[in-house]
Design a protein around this nucleic acid. Structure first.
Ligand SMILES: [Mn+2]
Ligand SMILES: [Mn+2]
Ligand SMILES: [Zn+2]
Ligand SMILES: [Zn+2]
Lengths: 131, 131
DNA sequence: TCATGAACAGTAACCATTACCAATAAACAA
DNA sequence: TTGTTTATTGGTAATGGTTACTGTTCATGA
Protein backbone atom coordinates (compact mmCIF):
# COMPACT_ATOMS: atom_id res chain seq x y z
CA UNK A 1 0.00 0.00 0.00
CA UNK A 2 1.74 3.13 -1.21
CA UNK A 3 1.30 6.10 1.02
CA UNK A 4 -0.15 9.12 -0.79
CA UNK A 5 2.53 11.79 -0.66
CA UNK A 6 1.12 14.93 0.84
CA UNK A 7 1.93 18.39 -0.44
CA UNK A 8 2.59 21.34 1.83
CA UNK A 9 1.55 24.88 1.06
CA UNK A 10 4.77 26.75 1.54
CA UNK A 11 5.21 30.50 1.42
CA UNK A 12 7.29 30.09 -1.75
CA UNK A 13 4.63 28.04 -3.55
CA UNK A 14 1.93 30.48 -2.48
CA UNK A 15 3.78 33.55 -3.73
CA UNK A 16 4.68 31.92 -7.06
CA UNK A 17 1.02 31.06 -7.66
CA UNK A 18 -0.17 34.53 -6.63
CA UNK A 19 2.33 36.30 -8.85
CA UNK A 20 1.43 34.12 -11.82
CA UNK A 21 -2.27 34.89 -11.32
CA UNK A 22 -1.56 38.61 -11.22
CA UNK A 23 0.00 38.93 -14.68
CA UNK A 24 -1.04 38.23 -18.25
CA UNK A 25 2.48 38.04 -19.61
CA UNK A 26 3.06 34.27 -19.64
CA UNK A 27 6.46 34.66 -17.98
CA UNK A 28 9.41 32.30 -18.29
CA UNK A 29 10.81 30.59 -15.20
CA UNK A 30 13.51 33.23 -14.74
CA UNK A 31 10.94 36.01 -15.16
CA UNK A 32 8.84 34.37 -12.43
CA UNK A 33 12.03 34.20 -10.37
CA UNK A 34 12.49 37.95 -10.80
CA UNK A 35 8.88 38.68 -9.85
CA UNK A 36 8.88 36.46 -6.78
CA UNK A 37 12.23 37.70 -5.53
CA UNK A 38 10.71 41.12 -4.86
CA UNK A 39 8.67 39.48 -2.09
CA UNK A 40 10.99 36.60 -1.16
CA UNK A 41 14.52 37.82 -1.85
CA UNK A 42 16.15 34.59 -0.64
CA UNK A 43 14.17 32.16 -2.84
CA UNK A 44 16.29 30.02 -5.12
CA UNK A 45 15.80 29.49 -8.84
CA UNK A 46 15.58 25.75 -8.27
CA UNK A 47 12.62 26.25 -5.96
CA UNK A 48 10.87 28.28 -8.66
CA UNK A 49 11.40 25.53 -11.23
CA UNK A 50 10.29 22.81 -8.81
CA UNK A 51 7.10 24.62 -7.85
CA UNK A 52 6.21 25.61 -11.40
CA UNK A 53 6.38 21.92 -12.28
CA UNK A 54 4.32 20.88 -9.25
CA UNK A 55 1.71 23.58 -9.86
CA UNK A 56 1.41 22.55 -13.51
CA UNK A 57 1.14 18.91 -12.47
CA UNK A 58 -1.72 19.71 -10.11
CA UNK A 59 -3.49 21.82 -12.73
CA UNK A 60 -3.19 25.12 -10.89
CA UNK A 61 -1.19 26.69 -13.71
CA UNK A 62 -0.40 25.95 -17.37
CA UNK A 63 3.01 25.05 -18.73
CA UNK A 64 3.45 26.23 -22.32
CA UNK A 65 6.16 24.30 -24.14
CA UNK A 66 7.84 24.81 -27.49
CA UNK A 67 11.09 23.16 -28.51
CA UNK A 68 13.86 25.66 -29.04
CA UNK A 69 12.52 28.34 -26.75
CA UNK A 70 12.14 28.41 -23.02
CA UNK A 71 8.99 27.24 -21.32
CA UNK A 72 6.37 29.79 -20.29
CA UNK A 73 3.78 29.67 -17.54
CA UNK A 74 0.18 30.85 -17.26
CA UNK A 75 -1.86 31.40 -14.09
CA UNK A 76 -5.07 31.49 -16.14
CA UNK A 77 -6.31 27.92 -16.51
CA UNK A 78 -9.65 28.74 -18.13
CA UNK A 79 -9.78 27.45 -21.74
CA UNK A 80 -8.15 29.89 -24.13
CA UNK A 81 -5.61 29.97 -26.94
CA UNK A 82 -2.21 31.53 -27.44
CA UNK A 83 -0.17 33.44 -30.01
CA UNK A 84 3.58 33.20 -30.01
CA UNK A 85 5.81 35.96 -31.39
CA UNK A 86 8.11 34.30 -33.92
CA UNK A 87 10.81 36.87 -33.23
CA UNK A 88 11.10 37.06 -29.45
CA UNK A 89 9.02 34.12 -28.17
CA UNK A 90 6.59 36.24 -26.16
CA UNK A 91 3.15 34.68 -25.75
CA UNK A 92 -0.23 36.43 -25.73
CA UNK A 93 -3.83 35.37 -25.22
CA UNK A 94 -6.14 35.05 -28.21
CA UNK A 95 -9.39 36.87 -27.40
CA UNK A 96 -11.86 34.77 -29.32
CA UNK A 97 -14.32 31.96 -29.08
CA UNK A 98 -12.10 28.95 -28.59
CA UNK A 99 -12.51 27.20 -31.90
CA UNK A 100 -11.61 23.58 -31.43
CA UNK A 101 -10.45 22.01 -34.67
CA UNK A 102 -12.49 19.07 -35.94
CA UNK A 103 -10.08 16.18 -35.53
CA UNK A 104 -12.66 13.44 -36.12
CA UNK A 105 -11.38 12.72 -39.63
CA UNK A 106 -7.70 12.94 -38.82
CA UNK A 107 -5.66 9.73 -39.19
CA UNK A 108 -1.99 9.24 -38.53
CA UNK A 109 -0.35 5.86 -39.19
CA UNK A 110 1.28 4.55 -36.03
CA UNK A 111 -0.45 7.11 -33.81
CA UNK A 112 -3.64 7.46 -31.83
CA UNK A 113 -4.78 11.06 -32.11
CA UNK A 114 -6.26 12.33 -28.87
CA UNK A 115 -6.59 16.08 -29.30
CA UNK A 116 -5.92 19.04 -31.54
CA UNK A 117 -5.23 22.62 -30.69
CA UNK A 118 -4.64 25.72 -32.77
CA UNK A 119 -1.24 27.34 -32.36
CA UNK A 120 -1.20 30.94 -33.51
CA UNK A 121 1.95 32.65 -34.70
CA UNK A 122 2.56 36.31 -35.18
CA UNK A 123 4.55 39.33 -34.15
CA UNK A 124 4.26 41.25 -30.90
CA UNK A 125 4.04 45.05 -30.82
CA UNK A 126 7.57 45.47 -29.45
CA UNK A 127 9.05 43.44 -32.33
CA UNK A 128 6.76 45.01 -34.92
CA UNK A 129 7.92 48.52 -34.04
CA UNK A 130 11.55 47.43 -34.34
CA UNK A 131 11.12 46.66 -38.06
CA UNK B 1 28.01 46.95 -51.39
CA UNK B 2 27.69 43.63 -49.57
CA UNK B 3 28.67 40.62 -51.59
CA UNK B 4 26.06 37.84 -51.68
CA UNK B 5 27.55 34.87 -49.85
CA UNK B 6 27.48 31.76 -51.99
CA UNK B 7 26.71 28.28 -50.66
CA UNK B 8 28.65 25.16 -51.58
CA UNK B 9 27.15 21.71 -51.94
CA UNK B 10 29.37 19.65 -49.70
CA UNK B 11 29.29 15.88 -49.31
CA UNK B 12 28.09 16.34 -45.72
CA UNK B 13 25.19 18.58 -46.69
CA UNK B 14 24.21 16.24 -49.52
CA UNK B 15 24.14 13.15 -47.31
CA UNK B 16 22.18 14.90 -44.54
CA UNK B 17 19.53 15.96 -47.08
CA UNK B 18 19.37 12.50 -48.67
CA UNK B 19 19.02 10.72 -45.35
CA UNK B 20 16.28 13.08 -44.22
CA UNK B 21 14.37 12.48 -47.46
CA UNK B 22 14.63 8.72 -46.98
CA UNK B 23 12.84 8.52 -43.64
CA UNK B 24 9.43 9.47 -42.29
CA UNK B 25 10.52 9.52 -38.68
CA UNK B 26 11.10 13.26 -38.12
CA UNK B 27 14.45 12.64 -36.44
CA UNK B 28 16.14 14.88 -33.90
CA UNK B 29 19.56 16.38 -34.68
CA UNK B 30 21.40 13.59 -32.86
CA UNK B 31 19.31 10.96 -34.65
CA UNK B 32 20.29 12.54 -37.98
CA UNK B 33 23.87 12.45 -36.72
CA UNK B 34 23.55 8.70 -36.12
CA UNK B 35 22.05 8.10 -39.57
CA UNK B 36 24.63 10.17 -41.43
CA UNK B 37 27.57 8.69 -39.55
CA UNK B 38 26.93 5.33 -41.19
CA UNK B 39 27.98 6.91 -44.49
CA UNK B 40 30.33 9.62 -43.21
CA UNK B 41 31.86 8.27 -39.99
CA UNK B 42 34.04 11.33 -39.44
CA UNK B 43 31.27 13.97 -39.64
CA UNK B 44 30.92 16.13 -36.55
CA UNK B 45 27.74 16.88 -34.65
CA UNK B 46 28.31 20.60 -35.14
CA UNK B 47 28.30 20.11 -38.90
CA UNK B 48 24.96 18.32 -38.65
CA UNK B 49 23.43 21.18 -36.64
CA UNK B 50 24.85 23.82 -38.98
CA UNK B 51 23.55 22.10 -42.09
CA UNK B 52 20.13 21.36 -40.64
CA UNK B 53 19.80 25.07 -39.97
CA UNK B 54 21.01 26.04 -43.45
CA UNK B 55 18.75 23.49 -45.15
CA UNK B 56 15.76 24.73 -43.13
CA UNK B 57 16.70 28.31 -43.99
CA UNK B 58 16.75 27.52 -47.71
CA UNK B 59 13.45 25.65 -47.50
CA UNK B 60 14.85 22.23 -48.40
CA UNK B 61 13.72 20.72 -45.09
CA UNK B 62 11.36 21.62 -42.25
CA UNK B 63 12.41 22.43 -38.72
CA UNK B 64 9.69 21.38 -36.25
CA UNK B 65 9.68 23.34 -33.02
CA UNK B 66 6.59 21.85 -31.39
CA UNK B 67 6.64 21.00 -27.70
CA UNK B 68 9.38 18.72 -26.46
CA UNK B 69 12.96 19.13 -25.46
CA UNK B 70 14.53 18.70 -28.90
CA UNK B 71 13.82 20.11 -32.33
CA UNK B 72 12.89 17.64 -35.07
CA UNK B 73 13.49 17.73 -38.81
CA UNK B 74 11.46 16.70 -41.84
CA UNK B 75 12.68 16.07 -45.39
CA UNK B 76 9.10 16.27 -46.68
CA UNK B 77 8.33 19.91 -47.41
CA UNK B 78 4.92 19.38 -49.01
CA UNK B 79 2.12 20.88 -46.86
CA UNK B 80 1.05 18.45 -44.16
CA UNK B 81 0.39 18.32 -40.43
CA UNK B 82 1.93 16.54 -37.49
CA UNK B 83 0.97 14.57 -34.38
CA UNK B 84 3.27 14.44 -31.40
CA UNK B 85 3.32 11.61 -28.88
CA UNK B 86 2.86 13.21 -25.47
CA UNK B 87 4.82 10.40 -23.82
CA UNK B 88 7.99 10.06 -25.91
CA UNK B 89 7.94 13.11 -28.20
CA UNK B 90 7.94 11.14 -31.45
CA UNK B 91 6.29 12.96 -34.36
CA UNK B 92 4.14 11.46 -37.12
CA UNK B 93 2.42 12.75 -40.25
CA UNK B 94 -1.33 13.36 -40.25
CA UNK B 95 -2.81 11.78 -43.38
CA UNK B 96 -5.70 14.10 -44.06
CA UNK B 97 -6.87 17.06 -46.02
CA UNK B 98 -4.86 19.88 -44.53
CA UNK B 99 -7.54 21.85 -42.76
CA UNK B 100 -6.20 25.30 -42.14
CA UNK B 101 -7.90 26.89 -39.18
CA UNK B 102 -9.93 30.03 -39.90
CA UNK B 103 -7.93 32.70 -38.12
CA UNK B 104 -9.75 35.64 -39.69
CA UNK B 105 -11.69 36.42 -36.51
CA UNK B 106 -8.84 35.90 -34.10
CA UNK B 107 -7.65 38.95 -32.16
CA UNK B 108 -4.87 39.15 -29.62
CA UNK B 109 -4.14 42.43 -27.82
CA UNK B 110 -0.55 43.47 -28.42
CA UNK B 111 -0.03 40.96 -31.22
CA UNK B 112 -0.41 40.76 -34.97
CA UNK B 113 -1.62 37.25 -35.81
CA UNK B 114 -0.04 35.96 -39.00
CA UNK B 115 -0.89 32.27 -39.13
CA UNK B 116 -2.48 29.38 -37.30
CA UNK B 117 -1.66 25.72 -37.34
CA UNK B 118 -3.26 22.68 -35.76
CA UNK B 119 -1.08 20.82 -33.29
CA UNK B 120 -2.25 17.25 -32.89
CA UNK B 121 -1.39 15.33 -29.77
CA UNK B 122 -1.69 11.64 -29.15
CA UNK B 123 0.14 8.45 -28.33
CA UNK B 124 2.40 6.46 -30.62
CA UNK B 125 2.06 2.69 -31.00
CA UNK B 126 5.24 1.97 -29.06
CA UNK B 127 4.02 3.95 -26.06
CA UNK B 128 0.45 2.64 -26.35
CA UNK B 129 1.61 -0.96 -26.12
CA UNK B 130 3.67 -0.14 -23.04
CA UNK B 131 0.54 0.78 -21.08
C1' DT C 1 5.31 21.22 21.89
C1' DC C 2 7.37 17.61 19.28
C1' DA C 3 8.45 14.38 15.47
C1' DT C 4 8.30 13.64 10.72
C1' DG C 5 9.75 14.30 6.22
C1' DA C 6 8.33 17.60 2.34
C1' DA C 7 10.40 21.42 0.72
C1' DC C 8 14.10 24.65 0.95
C1' DA C 9 18.74 27.29 -0.52
C1' DG C 10 22.86 26.62 -2.61
C1' DT C 11 25.39 24.47 -5.88
C1' DA C 12 26.92 20.97 -9.18
C1' DA C 13 25.66 18.39 -13.14
C1' DC C 14 23.16 17.73 -17.35
C1' DC C 15 21.78 18.23 -22.12
C1' DA C 16 20.77 20.45 -26.40
C1' DT C 17 22.60 23.78 -29.02
C1' DT C 18 26.16 27.47 -30.52
C1' DA C 19 30.53 29.53 -31.02
C1' DC C 20 35.24 29.29 -32.10
C1' DC C 21 39.31 28.28 -34.97
C1' DA C 22 43.01 26.16 -37.59
C1' DA C 23 42.72 22.89 -41.40
C1' DT C 24 40.25 21.36 -45.48
C1' DA C 25 38.09 21.24 -49.81
C1' DA C 26 34.20 23.23 -53.10
C1' DA C 27 33.99 26.37 -56.85
C1' DC C 28 35.76 28.82 -60.43
C1' DA C 29 39.18 31.18 -63.36
C1' DA C 30 43.51 30.76 -65.65
C1' DT D 1 44.76 20.58 -64.99
C1' DT D 2 46.39 23.80 -61.52
C1' DG D 3 46.11 27.47 -58.45
C1' DT D 4 43.39 30.86 -55.62
C1' DT D 5 39.75 32.01 -52.79
C1' DT D 6 37.03 31.39 -48.94
C1' DA D 7 32.86 28.62 -47.39
C1' DT D 8 32.78 24.74 -44.73
C1' DT D 9 34.66 21.27 -41.81
C1' DG D 10 36.15 18.50 -37.44
C1' DG D 11 37.27 19.09 -32.89
C1' DT D 12 36.43 21.22 -28.94
C1' DA D 13 35.03 24.86 -25.70
C1' DA D 14 31.29 27.63 -24.18
C1' DT D 15 26.45 28.75 -23.43
C1' DG D 16 21.78 28.69 -21.60
C1' DG D 17 17.96 26.48 -19.75
C1' DT D 18 16.76 23.03 -16.75
C1' DT D 19 17.34 19.20 -13.41
C1' DA D 20 19.70 16.64 -9.64
C1' DC D 21 21.90 16.44 -5.26
C1' DT D 22 22.50 17.43 -0.25
C1' DG D 23 22.48 19.10 4.26
C1' DT D 24 19.23 22.33 6.56
C1' DT D 25 14.70 24.29 7.49
C1' DC D 26 10.03 24.51 8.50
C1' DA D 27 4.81 23.06 7.42
C1' DT D 28 1.92 19.87 9.30
C1' DG D 29 -0.57 16.66 12.31
C1' DA D 30 -0.25 14.17 16.69
MN1 LIG E 1 -2.83 32.55 -21.49
MN1 LIG F 1 6.17 15.35 -41.66
ZN1 LIG G 1 8.18 39.81 -30.15
ZN1 LIG H 1 5.49 7.56 -27.93
Amino acid sequence: MTQQQQTRMTKQRMVILEELRNVHSHPTADEVYGMVRQRLPRISLGTVYRNLDLLAESGDILKLESAGSQKRFDGNVTPHQHVRCTQCGRVGDVMDPVLLPDISGARAPGFIILSGRIEFEGVCEACASKN
